[in-house]
Amino acid sequence: MKKNISREEAKKSLVYDPYFEKGHYGSKIFQTIIAFLGWCGVISPFLWIIFPFVFPNRANHNHIVVYLEEKTTLHFLFIFLSLSFVFLVILYTILTLWNNYRFKHFLQKEKQYDAERVKVRRKLINQAYNERFGSKDFRHNVCFYSVKEEQNLETDFVKILYQKGENDD
């Protein structure tokens, strides 16, 4: 049986972030500024290196010197990231097509089993449980139940039960 829990109980068990709720404007502004400064810290070194190439006259005026190693490094970085991007696009395209193929041909079949056989087996196992442990209502509603030694199931109980049931039909 599925247990219904309140919103407060769900907040305790799940990740809770007030940033996405109504209100909390001070927290939202502070966190947004920190995120913006963080991204500026990530992007600024790239801008610092690219600036002399994009604005060479301004770089000379500000005494920013472009070294040959910087050009070589940027050229290598551009080639490496371009090849990585192409490789990842090809890889993810192949994986997506493969996943769609598997979903269409293997996972989305109507029946993966014999429904009539499952129905017969379910009936057999329910009858066996009723004989050994009592009715379904009793089993589901009792608070404490002690299984007697002779009621224990053998290791191959279900296998033998299914074989007998199929032979009887």
Rank of each mutant, 00 (worst) to 15 (best):
F55E: 06
I34K: 15
P56I: 10
K2E: 12
F138Y: 14
F20M: 01
G23Q: 07
H140S: 02
R102V: 13
I43E: 01
P45R: 07
F87C: 11
F133H: 03
N57K: 15
E110K: 10
K111Y: 13
R121M: 13
V86H: 00
R7H: 06
P45C: 06
R122D: 14
I125M: 14
C143R: 15
Y129P: 00
Q163N: 15
P18N: 10
Y25G: 01
F76W: 05
I5Q: 04
R121K: 09
L107I: 08
K111S: 14
K11D: 14
Y92F: 15
E131F: 12
W39F: 14
V120H: 12
V66F: 03
I160S: 13
I43Y: 11
P56W: 09
E110H: 06
E110Y: 03
S13M: 13
A59L: 06
K2I: 13
D17L: 13
K104E: 11
T73N: 03
K111L: 11
F138P: 00
Q112T: 11
N60S: 15
V66E: 04
E21W: 00
V65H: 14
T72Q: 13
N4I: 12
F76K: 02
H75E: 09
K119M: 12
H105A: 11
V89N: 04
I50Y: 11
N62R: 10
L47R: 00
K2H: 07
I49P: 00
L83E: 03
F157H: 14
L124S: 02
L77S: 09
V86C: 02
N99C: 08
I64N: 04
I29Y: 07
K22D: 12
R58G: 00
K159T: 14
Q127G: 06
K28A: 00
L37Y: 05
Y92L: 14
F78D: 03
D169P: 03
D156G: 04
K148W: 02
H105P: 03
D137K: 13
P18C: 04
K22Q: 07
I160M: 12
K12F: 04
N99G: 05
K119L: 10
G41D: 08
N130W: 06
V147S: 02
Y67V: 11
F138E: 12
R117I: 09
R132G: 01
H61E: 15
G41P: 02
F53H: 11
E8L: 09
L81R: 00
L47C: 05
K123S: 13
N126E: 15
V158R: 03
A59W: 04
C143I: 15
A59D: 04
N167I: 11
L153Y: 10
F78Q: 05
H105W: 15
E150Y: 13
E131P: 02
K11A: 11
L74A: 08
E9N: 06
K109C: 07
D168A: 10
L74I: 12
K3P: 00
I29R: 10
K3M: 09
